Every structure is written in C-alpha cells, then in structure tokens.
Amino acid sequence: MTLGMMAAQVAAKAVDKDATVHKWHVFQHVREARDAVGATDRALAILNALLSFHPDTAFNGDSDLVVFPSNEQLISRANGMSPATLRRHLAVLVQCGLVIRRDSPNGKRFARKGPNGEIEQAYGFDLTPIVVRAQEFKDLAEAVVAERRALKLAKERITLCRRDIVKMIATGIDEAIPADWRGFQRAYENIAGRIPRTAPRQSYDAIAGELEALWLEVQNTLETFVNPHNENANESHSERHIQNSKP
C-alpha cells in the first residue's frame, strides 16, 4: 500500500457528512488536472465508467459510494480494453487516491443485502475521494487553466514582438536611418533562434522579456530620428534624399 492510498483511506474516514458534490463536475476537474493528479487517459475512462455505475449524480458525505461492477461490465462501459489493461489502470486510480479498493474476503466485488433488500455491506471501489478531494481537484484544475492561459499569453507576446521588430528594422534600413541595423538584426536572430518548440511557460516568458527589451531599443532608435526636436537628424536624412533624387 502506497502513502497516497493510505492518505485517501484516512481522508475518507474524515469526510464531512454534510458535504455534497456533483460527481460529473468533479470528474471534469480531475480530467483537467490529470497530469497533476497522476492519472492516465485510460484510468480516467475507467473512473468515468465507475461513476456511471452509481445511480446518484449528487454525492453526499454520508452516502454509500461503493460500486461493484464486474470486470466485464467495466470493460464494456469504458469503451473496451483488455483485462490486463483494465487491472493496470484500476491500480493507477487507487494509487492516485481517486478511488479506494474495498476487497471482500475472496477478492470478489459484490453487495451483501439485508432482510429488506437494503445493502448492508458492499465490496468493490469506494468513490468517497470524489467528495473528500473535490475542492482540491477544483483548485488543481483552475491552476492548470491559469497556467495554460499564461503560456498562451507568453507565446502571443513573442509573436507580436517578432512581427514588430522585423518591421521596424526593415523600416530603418529602407529609410536609411543612421543606426546599427545589422546589429539589431543579429540580436533579433540570436533571440529568435532560441525560441523552443516545446518548453515550460517560464522559458517563453524569458524569451518574451528579451524580445521586448530589443523591441524597446529599436523603437527608441526610430523615435529618436523622427522626434521633431531632433532636427539635425531629419535635415541630414532629407539632404540624402535630395542628393539621391538628382540625376
């Protein structure tokens, strides 16, 4: 038994009896945060199937949340997989603390009913962690979404800076504005050449910061030339245009 499995069992015993969660909302959060949780796509397909075997959509802290489908039923509802694959990914769910295994003495999954037909004891998979860890899964999912958005924004910063820098350098060269445009071009190519195809968001933020610094330097160079207070630069530029236009 892993520490994660032990922690899940301890938490299940301390579940808030008044807690109520929507099982499919929690499942969406788990799916969003699957990498942080440690679940595989196949394991989530099995979790989806396990949740579907419980008749209630709202899970309560004081409800009996043990489901006991056979392997054949699980395989069918999880869109098909080999028994070995099923066992492997069921183990993932248990190790991640998403479900708790409640084994019977003979290892079978079943429910023992009382004289009136009510379930007295069920052996199978306990879904109580869905209630106990609902807020944790929601927080993880929100963090994943926020990180994905931050990554998208970092890439957008890079794209915009690259576009503007290339245009500004081209303008400086075409207008024969006195500046080290080759140096700017080399600096740009050096940064652009280090943009990774796949990397953590922090790497893209660092590249975006370098490009923004270069963007500011190139922008300031152009603004210095077109600034009306810099009459000498403008006059020199005009003289070159006049000379170039003479036959």
Results as ranks from 00 to 15, higher is better:
residue 1 M to K: 12
residue 1 M to H: 13
residue 2 T to M: 13
residue 3 L to G: 02
residue 7 A to I: 13
residue 12 A to S: 08
residue 16 D to A: 12
residue 18 D to H: 11
residue 25 H to C: 04
residue 29 H to V: 02
residue 29 H to C: 07
residue 32 E to L: 14
residue 32 E to F: 12
residue 34 R to L: 14
residue 35 D to L: 13
residue 36 A to D: 14
residue 38 G to T: 13
residue 39 A to V: 04
residue 42 R to L: 09
residue 46 I to L: 11
residue 53 F to R: 04
residue 57 T to I: 14
residue 58 A to H: 07
residue 63 S to M: 02
residue 64 D to A: 08
residue 64 D to E: 13
residue 65 L to A: 01
residue 75 I to S: 09
residue 77 R to G: 05
residue 80 G to S: 06
residue 83 P to C: 04
residue 83 P to T: 02
residue 95 Q to G: 02
residue 100 I to D: 00
residue 102 R to K: 10
residue 105 P to A: 09
residue 108 K to G: 12
residue 112 R to M: 15
residue 112 R to H: 13
residue 113 K to H: 15
residue 114 G to P: 02
residue 114 G to R: 11
residue 115 P to W: 07
residue 118 E to G: 08
residue 126 D to F: 04
residue 128 T to G: 00
residue 129 P to T: 00
residue 130 I to D: 00
residue 131 V to M: 00
residue 134 A to C: 06
residue 137 F to Y: 15
residue 138 K to Q: 15
residue 139 D to P: 10
residue 140 L to K: 15
residue 141 A to T: 11
residue 143 A to E: 12
residue 146 A to N: 03
residue 146 A to G: 04
residue 150 A to R: 05
residue 151 L to T: 03
residue 154 A to F: 05
residue 157 R to I: 04
residue 160 L to T: 07
residue 161 C to E: 07
residue 165 I to R: 04
residue 170 A to G: 06
residue 171 T to Y: 11
residue 174 D to N: 13
residue 181 W to P: 03
residue 181 W to L: 02
residue 182 R to I: 04
residue 182 R to V: 00
residue 185 Q to T: 13
residue 185 Q to H: 09
residue 186 R to S: 13
residue 187 A to T: 12
residue 188 Y to G: 08
residue 188 Y to F: 15
residue 191 I to N: 05
residue 193 G to V: 11
residue 194 R to Y: 01
residue 197 R to P: 03
residue 199 A to E: 03
residue 199 A to T: 14
residue 200 P to M: 09
residue 203 S to N: 08
residue 207 I to M: 01
residue 209 G to Y: 01
residue 210 E to R: 11
residue 214 L to A: 10
residue 223 E to C: 06
residue 228 P to M: 06
residue 229 H to W: 11
residue 229 H to I: 15
residue 230 N to Y: 10
residue 232 N to P: 02
residue 235 E to P: 02
residue 237 H to E: 08
residue 238 S to W: 11
residue 243 Q to A: 14
residue 244 N to A: 15
residue 245 S to L: 10
residue 246 K to M: 09
residue 247 P to N: 04
residue 247 P to H: 07
